[in-house]
């Protein structure tokens, strides 16, 4: 008796919206990694002195580079939103024998994210 085996197509991840979004989520890490390369070079240029730093700022202001950062920001935001929504499934917190609802943990995650972002903005730009 011959059972029929259906192989996975190479483009299996295009088969449903959920799979496509999964791939997009995974690929955000590539854009984040790319940004961090640009960022590390930024730090190196700071150590290189005022003129090297100014030249890098000038390069960062190029339209193509700004566009890259906008795309990277979109990717980073998508990573943050999906990540912070998925953490409650991994870490189960129990208070007094009842499980803390996932929605509460997600809300707390977003609150911390907002607070940290504001704090860092203030430290760099505000003072």
């Amino acid at each position: 008796m011959k059972a029929l085996v259906r192989p996975m197509p190479i483009l299996w991840w295009l088969r449903s919206r959920a799979y496509v979004l999964f791939m997009v989520r995974e690929l955000t890490s590539v854009l984040i990694a790319a940004y961090l390369v640009v960022f590390l070079i930024f730090l190196q240029r700071i150590a290189g002195g005022p003129s090297s730093y100014e030249r890098y700022l000038h390069w960062l202001a190029q339209p193509a580079v700004l566009a890259f950062h906008l795309v990277a920001l979109a990717a980073a935001l998508y990573h943050s939103v999906t990540w912070l929504q998925l953490t409650p499934m991994t870490v189960v917190i129990r208070l007094r024998d009842r499980r803390v609802p996932a929605a509460t943990i997600v809300a707390a995650n977003f609150a911390v994210w907002g607070a940290l972002s504001v704090l860092i903005l203030w430290l760099i730009v505000g003072t």
Binding site: S16, A18, Y19, F22, E26, L86, M89, T90
Partner: peptide
């Protein structure tokens, strides 16, 4: 790798991904 579709399709709300 936490695709998460298992939980989406589960008819008994088991949440296997979790």
């Amino acid at each position: 790798t936490l695709v998460g579709e298992c939980t989406t399709v589960c008819p008994a709300d088991v949440d296997p991904a979790a």
